[in-house]
């Protein structure tokens, strides 16, 4: 998924042209679709990160495209294009997952500002993701949201950023244990202990999972403060 790959979806040629012209000087790749059907087909094949979507279109309309995307491709960001006096529809669209909306007519600056904001937010997100502690925070949040696989990815990213710290190995062990792989979990707890013999959560996890200490807490320790 690339945020700077943008799909413009509007049945009016004027709007497609105006948007394309407004964005052509930016570092973005633009494609267009003339209706909902074409949009869904292009989105299935292409790695678009952002869609500028008109709500009113014949056939599959913008709301239906939005509905389909929010289920199948929640990673794709959507900005709604709306006519004057149709704010209610735009608000409904935002409740459905669109990140913003713009009213016709719009100036090229308005469009460029909106698109740059989305790209910048995405880049900032990536940078945050590049930070060890942020990766662990994201992992923790993913666990809270019950997305264990996503949490594993974040923890693995933390390990790749700094393999000399114990926290991520312990967290990976905790996640593997949640997934039912006790043996792999114990390997990671041991790795954490070897990196930092004083890291308590890893000791507690290992002794609990191996039943070495019958008095150990029953919960899996994700880190110093959090257990599951």
């Amino acid at each position: 998924m690339r945020t700077n790959k943008i799909l413009i979806v509007d049945d009016e040629k004027n709007i497609r042209m105006t948007l394309t012209q407004a964005l052509e000087d930016m570092d973005v790749e633009i494609d267009t679709a003339v209706n909902g059907e074409e949009a869904l087909s292009k989105l299935q094949d292409g790695d678009f990160g952002l869609v500028l979507l008109d709500l009113r279109m014949p056939g599959i309309d913008g709301m239906q495209v939005l509905d389909r995307l929010s289920k199948d491709r929640p990673d794709v960001k959507i900005i709604i294009i709306t006519a004057h006096g149709t704010i209610d529809a735009a608000v409904d669209a935002m409740k459905q997952g669109a990140i913003d909306f713009i009213q016709k007519p719009f100036t090229p600056e308005e469009i460029r500002d909106m698109v740059s904001k989305v790209i910048q937010e995405e880049t900032t997100g990536e940078q945050k993701n590049g930070d060890y502690d942020s990766c662990l925070k994201l992992a923790k949040k993913s666990v809270e949201d019950k997305h264990i696989e996503a949490a594993v990815e974040h923890v693995k990213k933390a390990i790749s950023l700094d393999s000399s710290r114990a926290e991520a190995f312990n967290a990976l062990g905790a996640l593997l244990e949640i997934q039912g792989d006790k043996l792999e979990a114990q390997k990671n707890y041991r790795a954490a202990i070897s990196l930092d013999p004083g890291y308590k959560p890893a000791h507690e996890n290992l002794s609990r999972s191996t039943h070495a200490n019958p008095n150990a807490e029953k919960n899996i320790k994700f880190d110093q403060k959090t257990s599951y």
Binding site: K13, N14, M17, T18, Q21, P105
Partner: peptide
């Protein structure tokens, strides 16, 4: 003209 005009109408 459809081949020239790509603006908005109110």
């Amino acid at each position: 003209a459809p081949d020239q005009f790509s603006g908005f109408k109110i």
